[in-house]
């Protein structure tokens, strides 16, 4: 792009025909750098596998093509990973749903009374501050070693960000907007439904993105401690490590992070689809 064109684009709100960057160009700009970096990582990976490690300890980091062949292309192995991943995804989804319900309910109650808010909040912070490891025995004591305990871990880990964001969102309507509702004698419920909840949506979606990711982590971690019943991806990771199945271990790790990414992308999309038409994100300024 020439300097002159760039200068014009700065001064005038550019009509869509004169937009300096085409879609293809933008796509190229966002796709090429990560692809280049990815190739570089593959090269370094190969170098470690073949130059740093010798054939006896190569199992510590098998080269990419072997991870592909044993972990992904072998359907027996790959379906095992997928089934475990599906089980963990289900646990994460149940945990997240419960966390959403609890935090929406709590935040709504807290938003209605300053007294209740300051009464509850310290306990929420305390709950958040407890290291997960410290309450693992307690969870097993109360809920056993099966799926229920895994769900409990997901709820505990994803509750706080969801609650804090929802509460912050419910308080985010401007004083002027509140005055408007006061002037027209709106009831508490009307104010909540027509002002506070819609105003909270952007923050709720931001919280949802964080909590969803945490819930996936919670499901995998929970699987480590509470492995009875359905086999989740945490159990598989432990098993592959014990059996020195390096290729399957790496494949399982890659698929776990893939699940995290998929969840994040899903909630980003959901947020955009639900509130994108009215909510102005900060990055929307570079038209």
């Amino acid at each position: 792009m020439s300097k002159a064109a760039a200068a014009t684009a700065d001064n005038v709100p550019a009509p869509s025909t004169a937009r300096p960057k085409t879609l293809a160009r933008r796509l190229g700009e966002t796709l090429v750098p990560p692809i280049v970096l990815g190739c570089a990582i593959l090269i370094v990976w190969y170098m470690i596998s073949y130059l740093v490690l010798n054939s006896t300890n190569r199992f510590l980091l098998s080269p990419p093509h072997e991870v592909w062949l044993r972990g992904f292309a072998d359907w027996n192995n790959f379906s095992e990973i997928l089934i475990a991943l599906w089980s963990s995804a289900r646990v994460a989804a149940i945990g997240l749903s419960i966390a959403i319900c609890i935090s929406m309910l709590l935040a709504t109650i807290m938003s209605q009374s300053k007294l209740i808010e300051i009464a509850i909040f310290p306990y929420m912070v305390a709950l958040q501050a407890i290291p997960l490891l410290a309450i693992v025995p307690l969870i097993s004591f109360w809920f056993g070693f099966g799926q229920t305990s895994r769900v409990v871990v997901c709820v505990l880990i994803s509750l706080f960000p969801m609650l804090v964001n929802t509460l912050f969102g419910l308080h985010s309507a401007s004083r002027g907007a509140h005055d408007l509702f006061t002037l027209h004698r709106a009831s508490r419920l009307t104010r909540l439904r027509k002002l506070m909840l819609p105003a909270a949506l952007p923050a709720i979606f931001a919280g949802l993105r964080i909590s969803a990711g945490l819930s996936v982590i919670g499901a995998i971690v929970g699987d480590f401690f509470f492995g009875r019943g359905d086999v989740g991806i945490g159990q598989r990771l432990r098993e592959y490590a014990n059996e020195l199945e390096g290729e399957q271990l790496l494949a399982a790790v890659i698929m776990s992070s893939g699940l995290g990414i998929a969840v994040f992308l899903f909630f980003t999309w959901l947020s955009k689809a639900s509130i994108g038409h009215w909510y102005e994100t900060r990055s929307a300024r570079d038209d």
Partner: peptide
């Protein structure tokens, strides 16, 4: 009001 105080979602 001093600001337009419009509801962004409407």
């Amino acid at each position: 009001f001093q600001d337009a105080t419009l509801l962004d979602w409407r």
